[in-house]
Design a binder for these strands. Structure first.
Length: 246
DNA sequence: GCATTAACCACAG
DNA sequence: CTGTGGTTAATGC
């Protein structure tokens, strides 16, 4: 406990110093990355010198599928969707919430991106030079370890998310998605969908028609309150039941 | 066979 | 962009 306090106050001093000494423009951003807490002043400085901050408007492409992946992106604020396009269909594989790294698997796993990242809301992102990032991964094992943990957690989340979804039928998948929005994305029982019905379909593996119908059914049965893109969960128990039953 | 489910299509608002 | 209704194909009693 005490050790923790000393540790965090040290970190604070380090960040304060780095701000003054190195005039770090993005230490505010680095503060938000748990992984970057493992970097010392010199390393933070290196990161800072090889990092630019970019703003994206909704629907702007942050990186594109099939393009060469050339840098690591840290999502500082906003929501981003990862989209994979197959022959005829579009799938939204994940919604990313800040703070998080975008596309570590696709940056390190292959030369080219296996999916696109598109801004849903206004987005502020840090674009970090990949060579600098690699150097830090090699030289600082605590940092590397924290990144590995991050990537593993993401994979587990993805596996449980997608394979649980696959076994359900449409109503269950929609219910599951709504619960997911509520529990993990917005942390609230009422929220505004940041995308169209069609995209909701792309996210849950349904057609836009099914989404439209299912949402209305839920609304009619008093499970949710639906106003355009606004959803308020009324009967969470029921929703969980539908999700479980598939 | 008959029922259920969901995708695809077409046609409004 | 959404909501609806009809049609069709697949799958399971």
């Amino acid at each position: 406990m005490l050790k923790n306090m000393i540790y965090s106050s040290q970190k604070f001093v380090i960040l304060l110093l780095s701000h003054i000494l190195f005039k770090m423009k993005c230490n505010k951003c680095l503060l938000k990355s748990d992984e970057a807490q493992n970097l010392d002043i010199e390393e933070l400085g290196r990161m800072d010198r090889n990092c630019v901050q970019i703003n994206f408007a909704p629907n702007e492409v942050i990186f594109k599928q099939d393009a060469l992946s050339s840098n690591v992106i840290f999502l500082q604020s906003g929501l981003v969707k990862n989209i994979i396009k197959t022959n005829y269909k579009k799938h939204i594989i994940k919604i990313n919430k800040a703070p998080s790294y975008l596309g570590l698997p696709t940056t390190f796993g292959d030369k080219v991106n296996h999916y696109s990242a598109v801004a849903i809301t206004d987005v502020v992102a840090c674009n970090i030079d990949i060579e600098t990032f690699k150097e830090l991964l090699r030289s600082n094992s605590d940092f590397s370890y924290s990144i590995i943990v991050r990537v593993c957690k993401n994979e587990l989340e993805y596996l449980s998310g997608s394979f649980v979804q696959m076994q359900k039928q449409s109503g269950g998948r929609v219910a599951e998605a709504i619960l997911n929005f509520s529990n993990n994305l917005f942390n609230s029982d009422s929220f505004t969908l940041p995308f169209t019905r069609s995209e909701f379909g792309d996210l849950t593996g349904n057609s836009r028609e099914i989404i439209s119908r299912t949402l209305h059914e839920f609304s009619k049965e008093g499970i949710i309150e639906l106003k355009g893109r606004n959803i308020a969960i009324i009967d969470k128990k029921r929703l969980e039941q539908i999700s479980r039953a598939g």
